[in-house]
Amino acid sequence: MARRRAKYAGYSFLIPWLVGFFGLTLGPALASLYLSFTHYDLIESPRWAGLANYIRIVSEDAKVGDSVRVTLVYVALSVPLKLGFALAIALILNKGIRGLGVYRALFYLPSLLGASVAIATLWRKVFSGDGLLNHVLAYVGIQGPSWVSDPDHALWTLVALSVWQFGSPMIIFLAGLRQLPQDIFEAAAIDGASARTQFWRITLPMLTPVIFFNLVVQTIDAFKAFTPAFIVSGGTGGPINATLFYTLYLYQEAFGYLRMGYAAALAWLLVLAIMAVTAFAFMTSRSWVHYEE
């Protein structure tokens, strides 16, 4: 009897999580799937719409096209640049340099602060017409535009904000680098492998699991980014939709226009996109990620 009670004791600890899982995750996810096939404005009850929302997203709504393009460009630019910086600095820090702890902390600081509104507003002023960047550029005789309000450059300021926060993937790279077995490098050095050969033939292949992890996490995160675009563009996604992230458009549709069904359909397409990208990453990973036996 006591044994049987012990067998199910685990569930009593899981009560909060179970309530959360069914009430806040699974239930709402299914509800939003249903809503995505309806028109719903929070006031009247949902009206069945069939595939109308999805059809409008795919073929009729030009803003969706803009926001998809902006989001893909943002992901494609910010993730590789961020990981590139993270890896480069991690490699230098791994050279047994003095003051490692201080450098690591300094590079990590932006990652910790970067998600806040304070930094997003600062960014807006660094890249404005009379902002910090243009003052610095003026010293070398360049007159820069107002980066945040120029449609050709606005998205780059957000990419820069993301790359600025390369500290946390850098820490993960550094932890990965420190776990590489040193005897392989010693053996390679004895065999006459140059530093460059060692990097391309040993360091990089052995680091691929960490690279893969960072790539997946940062990509998903970039798809979900919201606050920087919202603050830097003042909630509009402007100029001329140049920073209209998909998530920002979803927010506008849901809470600006109260088109809840439409926004739910947008959300489900985002999930499908993220799942597809992740699945793609896992599929290709077999050919380039090296796992130790």
Binding site: L24, A29, L35, L42, K224, A267, V271
Partner: peptide, 21 residues
């Protein structure tokens, strides 16, 4: 595994029904 799964789900999916709730 379900907990692992919830890590993958972006908050936008549950956002609207949660708001209604």
């Amino acid at each position: 595994s379900l907990m692992l799964g919830t890590l993958m789900i972006p908050y936008q999916v549950t956002l609207i029904p949660q708001y209604i709730l």
